[in-house]
């Protein structure tokens, strides 16, 4: 049984490949968008369980996608993990202020470290009393 649907919004092919690999290996279903505009459309139409969102994107930036997701009734509760090479504190703060649940800097750290965080965020959302 699939653990959940994750939408990856990322313009770099290599990171879509890496994170699809990691997540599918753990039993998630993955959908992909290679720009901000498509990402926002898929968030609305597919209503994923979690969004993995890059910040530097063509079309809409990650910040803009995040803002739209948080301001739209049907998507506002979807957990969002922001991942970016922008590792400056001000970038992280801005993303957290806009409503990101977690910020991860793409760097040397193993991509598989993200699995635990994603599982926690999806579980928390499901166990949240309505």
């Amino acid at each position: 049984m699939a653990k959940g649907n994750v939408l990856i919004v990322e313009d770099e092919t290599v990171f879509r490949l890496i994170y699809r690999g990691v997540l599918e290996n753990e039993g998630f279903q993955v959908i992909e968008a290679e720009d901000g505009k498509k990402g926002w459309e898929l968030a609305k139409s597919k209503h994923p369980d979690l969004i993995l969102l890059d910040l530097v994107l063509p079309g809409l930036t990650g910040y803009e996608v995040l803002e739209k997701v948080r301001n739209h009734e049907e998507t506002k509760d979807i957990p969002v993990v922001v991942f970016s090479v922008l590792g400056e504190s001000k970038d992280i703060d801005k993303a957290i202020d806009l409503g990101a649940n977690y910020y991860r800097t793409k760097g040397i750290d193993s991509p598989t470290n993200i699995v635990g965080i994603i599982e926690d965020l999806i579980d928390n959302k499901e166990s949240k009393p309505e």
Partner: peptide
Amino acid sequence: LKTPVSGILGCIDN
């Protein structure tokens, strides 16, 4: 500069 290197590292890690 960081994007390609961390991409390669991610692939190797997987």
